[in-house]
Simulated scan of single mutants.
Amino acid sequence: MCGKQHTELGVERLVEKLCRKCSLSLTEYELLVAQRTPKIAQQLAARAVEVRKRVYGTKVFTRGLIEASSYCKNDCLYCGIRRSNCAARRYRLSPDEIVECANNGYELGFRTFVVQGGEDPFFTDDVLCGVVSRIREAHPDCAVTLSFGERSPQSYARLRAAGAERYLLRHETASPELYARWHPSSMSFDNRMRCLGELRAAGFAVGAGFMVGAPFQTAADLARDLKFIELFRPEMCGIGPFIPHHATPFASYPSGSVELTCYVLSIVRIVVPNVLLPATTALGTIDARGRELGILSGANVVMPNLSPVAHRKDYDLYDNKICTGEEVAECRGRLGARMLSIGYQLVVDRGDVAPLSQTNRFETREEQRHGRSI
Rank of each mutant, 00 (worst) to 15 (best):
D141Q: 13
V127G: 02
E100M: 13
I295H: 07
A102H: 07
S266T: 07
I342D: 06
E327W: 05
L77P: 02
E100I: 09
G333H: 01
S147H: 06
R192H: 11
G130T: 15
D316T: 00
L260G: 01
S373V: 11
G333V: 09
C19A: 04
E97C: 02
V268I: 06
D349F: 13
S133V: 04
Q368G: 03
E137I: 08
Y263R: 02
V51D: 06
V127D: 02
A354K: 05
Q217M: 12
K321W: 12
G10M: 12
R372L: 12
A214W: 13
S341T: 12
V33T: 03
N104M: 12
P241R: 05
Y253N: 10
L9P: 00
T37E: 03
A337V: 03
P153H: 01
P304T: 08
S257A: 04
Q345E: 15
L340V: 01
F61Q: 11
C262D: 05
Y344K: 08
A45D: 05
G64A: 08
E119L: 07
R170V: 00
D141F: 03
N320S: 14
L346F: 15
I270P: 07
D75W: 14
A34N: 02
G3N: 15
F362R: 11
S266C: 11
L226Q: 08
S307C: 01
Y156N: 04
P176R: 02
I270V: 13
N85R: 11
F362G: 02
L356T: 13
V212K: 00
F110N: 04
V114S: 13
R134G: 01
T145W: 04
G3H: 14
C331L: 10
D349A: 14
G284F: 15
D349K: 09
I374D: 02
Q217L: 11
Y156D: 07
D96Q: 15
G325L: 14
P153E: 03
I270G: 02
H139M: 07
A223T: 03
Q43N: 02
V115S: 10
V271K: 08
A220E: 13
L93H: 06
A219K: 01
K73W: 04
Q116L: 14
L276R: 15
Q368F: 08
A251L: 05
L199R: 09
Y167L: 01
G351E: 06
A337Q: 08
E12S: 08
G130F: 11
Y29E: 10
L283W: 08
P241D: 04
C237D: 04
R136A: 04
E330R: 14
C323A: 13
N104K: 15
E30T: 06
W182Q: 09
L32S: 00
C101H: 11
S252E: 13
M339H: 05
R36D: 00
E8C: 03
E8I: 06
R111M: 06
Y56W: 13
A223L: 01
Q154W: 03
L169G: 00
S297R: 00
